[in-house]
């Protein structure tokens, strides 16, 4: 019975793909909030299809980290042509996987740091920050937070990219002192969640004074909810960056389309979409600038970002340092 059903479903799919064979298909693997109806995905699909004479199909992974794990599960034998939403902290692993091909895209960006990469094409970025209510007394640094009585929720660096970003932040700003910082911050960390959604949910429910999120988070509350009551704390030692990148698969049977899609991600049309769909900064300032409600990213004077080699080299020790200090 079941086999019969599986076979008939498989038959339907074959039939369907044969019917569309004259129009090339571009399969894009991304994380689910990018492809969902609230993300930039649907508009990007529609926009690209008008210029490419192709069909864009999304496949979704749960989050940015899951994209690479899905590809490694598929062991290279994948239909995916482009992966969108890899995190700058994971590009070393992605490069080492050998799944990705040089992009052929080399346009200048407005990123506050130099970005020269033959494979990974940035399409949005943000600064990690603790987000709190405006009337909560704001500390000026991670150190001051550790010495305060404030309670924060953070994400686990072992299961979420913001969590990993915080670990690299502490390491960039405090170096060998990061272990001591974590030991002092242990009593400020109310709890650690598996991902961003759980952490942000706890914060909005009033469980914590602040949550590890992005400097762009308050813009969502201003623009979508008309609530100016949330602020992102700026720290003297700087804010750590997250750059979201896309890349073409080496195994793609439509490398030309894939390259066009990567270019399209940096186009004015897509970059203008990014702020109010993905709630991140565009990598190239769109013509109309940022929507009202967004802070000027230049307000952060010390952008922090490790090279992918540094991040990869420190990854295990930095997480272990964090774990050991908090597990005590």
């Amino acid at each position: 019975m079941k086999t019969k059903y599986l076979i008939s479903v498989a038959g339907l799919c074959l039939g369907a793909s044969a019917a569309m064979a004259d129009v090339p298909e571009l399969t894009v693997l991304t994380y689910d909030s990018f492809a969902s109806e609230w993300g930039p995905g649907p508009a990007i699909k529609a926009g690209f299809e008008t210029v490419c004479d192709c069909t864009v199909t999304y496949q979704i992974a749960i989050d940015g980290a899951a994209i690479l794990s899905r590809l490694s599960l598929e062991g290279g034998a994948t239909k995916v042509d482009v992966a969108v939403g890899l995190d700058s902290a994971l590009t070393a692993a992605a490069r080492a996987s050998g799944f990705f091909a040089p992009s052929g895209v080399d346009e200048a960006t407005d990123l506050p740091v130099a970005w020269n990469d033959d494979i990974f094409v940035p399409f949005d970025w943000g600064y990690f920050a603790f987000v709190a209510d405006a009337d909560t007394p704001a500390p000026d640094s991670l150190r001051e937070l550790a010495d305060s009585d404030l309670k924060v929720v953070i994400e686990d660096p072992r299961s979420s990219t913001p969590g990993l970003g915080l670990i690299l932040w502490a390491k960039s700003a405090y170096g060998d002192g990061a272990g001591a910082l974590w030991a002092d911050m242990a009593d400020n960390i109310l709890t650690v969640t598996p991902g961003w959604s759980e952490a942000y949910g706890l914060f909005l429910n009033g469980e914590a004074d602040a949550v590890l999120s992005y400097t762009t988070s308050p813009a969502y509350h201003i623009i979508a909810e008309g609530d100016a009551g949330k602020v992102a704390w700026r720290f003297d030692e700087g804010q750590y960056m997250q750059i979201e990148v896309a890349a073409a698969l080496a195994s793609s049977d439509a490398p030309g389309l894939a390259r066009d899609f990567l270019r399209y991600l940096q186009s004015d049309a897509v970059q203008a979409l990014i702020p109010t769909t993905n709630w991140m900064y565009p990598v190239r300032m769109p013509e109309g600038g940022l929507p009202t409600g967004f802070d000027d990213p230049a307000a952060v004077v010390k952008p922090l970002l490790m090279t992918e080699g540094e991040a990869a080299a420190l990854h295990d020790t930095a997480i272990e340092e964090w774990r050991a200090a908090l597990a005590r």
Binding site: S159, T191, T193, P194, E198, R323
Partner: peptide, 20 residues
Amino acid sequence: AVALTLGGGPRATTIELAIY
């Protein structure tokens, strides 16, 4: 997710998180 979220941190790491 329950263990981690309510456990207050890496003390409450389970095998399932390690697999993840």
